[in-house]
Amino acid sequence: MKLLDAPINTCCRIERLDGPETECRRLLDLGLTPGEEMAVVQAVPFGDPLVVEVRGMRLALRRREAAWIRVL
């Protein structure tokens, strides 16, 4: 399932990142590694970017970036 399709405020587990290599590598460096728990917390006005939580940290991710994340 795509992270974008996951319900808000629900914990999911990252399966893999499926996107451009360097960009995904930067996400991995930020701690978005497979197996890790994350959740979409809320969407800001305009519905973009999304606020997500991972490893005790809040991140603003554009929808384009969130679309690379597959979750279980």
Binding site: E23, R58, L59, L61
Partner: peptide
Amino acid sequence: SDSMLAMEMPL
């Protein structure tokens, strides 16, 4: 090309 945001929002 599109750039990234992926910005930390500190406590």
